[in-house]
Write a protein that binds this DNA or RNA. Structure first.
Length: 792
DNA sequence: AGCACGCCGACT
DNA sequence: GTCGGCGTGCTC
């Protein structure tokens, strides 16, 4: 009887294929193998072994010498595939993509002095030798240039050396040497080698000069050990003094890590309460155990500040994982993660699929963030999948947030998650006091957006040498453009949303689908010239007003669509944090990005933005965003204030912000949603919607799409007739992470939405559904009973 | 996801 | 006459 293995291939198929194992080939579940697939070969993973014969099967072509995919990760792939209704191969693809695309690491080399004088001496050559002598002098040497503390690719080379922890210098080499794939290294006995590029920069010459010296025999090129990635972390490096709230929370988390068992914990703490320090203690415990920690971040691009804090606490930076890594760095990081060398990884949601050797903790920072949702391909919410992975790895998972998602709070209230609260700010800082400005009575004059109260507040803050933030979550110049003569409104041809004027770019832009058109001179409807009016403010327009009202203030306007990209944004945020600007104007990215030590006043220019959305989650979202934005004010010894400009000061969200009573707000909010027939939280559903006209149905579906959270494989479901609906109506079914997955039309027909997971499960489910309950006139309402935490 | 096969429009 | 568009269907 021939041996047979079932191999899952990273393509869009759900079943593992069977292959015959040639004699002498050693395979185990998790082994990476090359198998023939159609006309080509693919690298797949052995999912199961069998003894049964299969004579007409193709053969496994080869084994790859990659470390096998461990059981918990294989189980995770299966679980996520079922949950998201995706083919298992597509989920596997996410877990092995790194291996497939990564380039082998480039050998690192550096130069050392041979002591032999060069045949000819020039100015540049002298500078090189002098620079090398300085860089290799043990007196001036703080850390070798291969400093493992510097893990970020582009920055690694030029970043200043970090002081080494006491007794840490030798620890570094001990940690790096043993693990270099067994490759022999030309080790220099005394001075550490210096990379050519670094030496050239230090000497102020080109690499050519160094090559000349090597040619001459004055310098020698030697191989250097690879830098460590995410390793060399010291749990006792920068011990922090915790306050009375933090201490028990940190001890609780550390104990959970020590117990090596699964648990899910909501770590809820107001902005500035020191959540990060608390979960750092859990990471410290992971390091003491010699295991690995994963920290998920919603926006990895803007986490420079976090990396610095991490380095200050543990003596080195963690490994980073996100889409911006180069191929080589990706490969190095992957090896470090798989071998266990990388003890801590900070990453975007894709890091959840990394092949950790021994994962001891997952932290999901800012767990309420929408950025955790993957919206194409395999649709999932990384926050929920993190809980699943943690369970499979038998590790605790910490969900950290100042403003948890409603469903996470419900899970904490019902005891499904443990709940740690940090009620007060760190040190002497207190939460900012929040007041409203009633735009009906004390608003600005027509065409202006800053109320007298806001202006007075800003002037006072600037007068004291403090910073003020104007927060308006609306990009562009004006959200609506209309014709004064005929009333024509500019709408998007694709999605019927208003087109937003961007004056810097001289364009009208749809923020929904990205459609862009130039701003015309004439009204396209009535051909009238100069009749187009901008209505309402965006940050660009606010910047215009601020320049008028505060001509002397150093003002910075930030918006995610400004040219220059992430790097520019990061630099500007850092400059603002250093106090190089008096007045910062920005969209939600300033609410999240950074701490501003001298910021004492936040003016929310239009607190009603977002409240009018059809999105049933609008209130929750607005509460989270404004609480975060206003929380930027007041640090350390200075008191913070916030002003909310609003047309509806009595609105529950505004009231909750002013009173600071989050508890009551969350309670009201979940009550209200239950009464509105929305799925009770903690048991989220895929929803099929229906309404009078197609446009409204779609709008409603889209809004609900933002609310539903996940969908299991076709488990129990209920069908209820709506009745009395017009013929020809479309009904949209929502799936994992709130994506529309199918549109039901008329009677038994349905088509999958563009982004729908293409699994047999889903199609079979829909067919079964429609067969079991033929839609009544007009349509059906389908609620798929989903419990995203049903695994607990 | 790839990659084949397959059946209709404008080009060397 | 063929090169090539991307629609459909399959991969042990």
């Amino acid at each position: 009887m021939a041996r047979v293995v079932d191999v899952l291939v990273p393509v869009a198929v759900d079943t593992a294929y069977s292959y015959r194992v040639p004699a002498g080939l050693v395979l185990e579940p998790g082994s990476f193998v090359s198998v023939p697939l159609g006309t080509r070969h693919a690298t797949g993973v052995v999912w199961a072994e069998r003894e049964a014969g299969g004579d007409n099967l193709k053969q496994v072509a080869a084994v790859r010498d990659w470390p096998p995919l461990r059981r918990p990760l294989r189980d995770f792939v299966d679980w996520v595939a079922r949950w998201t209704l995706s083919p298992r191969g597509m989920v596997l693809r996410m877990a092995v993509r790194a291996q497939e695309t990564a380039a082998p690491p480039a050998p690192r080399s550096g130069v050392v002095a041979t002591g032999k004088p060069p045949a000819r001496m020039t100015d540049a050559r002298a500078r090189v030798l002098a620079a090398l002598a300085t860089m290799q002098d043990p007196q001036t040497l703080i850390r070798p240039p291969a400093a493992p503390a510097l893990s970020l690719g582009e920055r690694g080379a030029e970043a200043p050396p970090t002081p080494s922890p006491p007794g840490g210098g030798s620890r570094h080499s001990a940690a790096t040497e043993g693990r270099l794939d067994g490759r022999p290294l030309a080790r220099d006995e005394g001075a550490p080698p210096v990379p050519k590029s670094a030496l050239a920069e230090a000497a102020g010459c080109s690499v050519g000069v160094i090559d000349g010296l090597i040619e001459d025999g004055a310098l020698a090129l030697v191989e250097m050990p690879q830098e460590t990635i995410g390793g060399d972390l010291d749990p006792g490096f920068g011990n922090t003094v915790l306050n009375a709230d933090q201490r028990p929370a940190a001890a609780d988390l550390a104990a959970r890590v020590a117990s090596r068992a699964f648990s899910a914990i909501l770590l809820e703490g107001v902005t500035g309460s020191g959540k990060t320090e608390v979960y750092f203690e859990a990471i410290a415990e992971v390091l003491r155990q010699g295991r690995q920690a994963l920290v998920l971040m919603p926006e990895i691009a803007l986490t420079g500040e976090f990396l610095d804090r991490f380095a200050a606490r543990f003596g080195a930076r963690p490994a980073e994982w996100h889409s911006g890594l180069t191929e080589r760095r990706r490969e190095r990081t992957l090896r470090a993660v798989a071998s266990g060398e990388a003890r801590a990884v900070v990453g975007a949601r894709s890091a959840l699929f990394l092949p950790f050797a021994d994962l001891g903790l997952i932290v999901v920072d800012e767990e309420h963030e929408g950025a955790y949702k993957q919206e194409d391909g395999v649709i999932y919410n990384a926050r929920d999948m993190a809980v699943v992975r943690a369970r499979l790895e038998r590790a605790p998972v910490v969900l950290a947030s100042a403003t948890p998602a409603l469903e996470t709070r419900v899970n904490a209230e019902t005891g499904r998650y443990a709940w740690l609260k940090l009620p007060s700010r760190f040190g002497s800082a207190t939460l900012p006091d929040i007041a409203t400005v009633d735009l009906r009575r004390e608003g600005p004059p027509r065409g202006r957006w800053l109320s007298p109260k806001a202006i007075a507040g800003i002037e006072a803050a600037l007068g004291r040498g403090e910073q003020a933030l104007l927060f308006l979550n609306r990009r562009g110049y004006a959200p609506l453009t209309l014709c004064r003569s005929c009333g024509h409104r500019f709408e998007c041809p694709n999605c019927s949303a208003w087109l937003v004027e961007h004056r810097f770019r001289a364009a009208l832009v749809c923020h929904h689908c990205g459609h862009v058109e130039p701003r015309p001179k004439l009204c396209p409807e009535c051909r009238e010239a100069d009749s187009l009016t901008a209505c309402g403010p965006g940050v660009e327009r606010l910047a215009e007003e601020a320049a008028l009202v505060f001509p002397d203030a150093r003002t910075l306007t930030l918006s995610s669509d400004f040219p220059g990209g992430v790097e520019t944004l990061r630099r500007q945020l850092e400059a603002a944090a250093r106090g190089e600007f008096d007045l910062v104007i920005g969209t939600q990215l300033v609410a999240k990005g950074h701490n501003f030590p001298s910021l004492t006043l936040v003016v929310v220019v239009d607190a009603d933005v977002g409240l009018a959305n059809a999105d049933p989650r609008a209130a929750e979202r607005t509460f989270q965003l404004l609480r975060q934005a206003t929380g930027r004010a007041g640090r350390a010894e200075r008191e913070g204030h916030a002003l909310l400009q609003t047309w509806q000061p009595e609105h529950p969200v505004i009231q909750a912000l002013v009173s600071g009573d989050a508890e009551r707000f969350y309670a009201q909010e979940s009550d209200q949603r239950r009464r509105g027939g929305l799925p009770p939280f903690g048991r989220l559903a895929a929803i099929v919607v229906s309404a009078e006209d197609k446009g409204a149905a779609e709008a409603h579906a889209r809004a609900l799409a933002r609310t539903a959270h996940a969908m299991p494989a076709a488990r129990g479901f209920r069908v209820a007739p709506l009745g009395g609906l017009p013929q020809g109506e479309e009904i949209t079914l929502l799936g994992p992470a709130e994506a529309p997955i199918a549109v039901l039309r008329k009677r038994h027909r349905f088509r999958l939405a563009a982004k729908a997971p293409r699994s047999a499960d889903l199609q079979g489910f829909l067919r079964a559904l429609l067969a079991a309950a033929p839609p009544p006139r007009g349509g059906v309402k389908i609620a798929i009973d989903v419990d995203p935490q049903s695994f607990l």
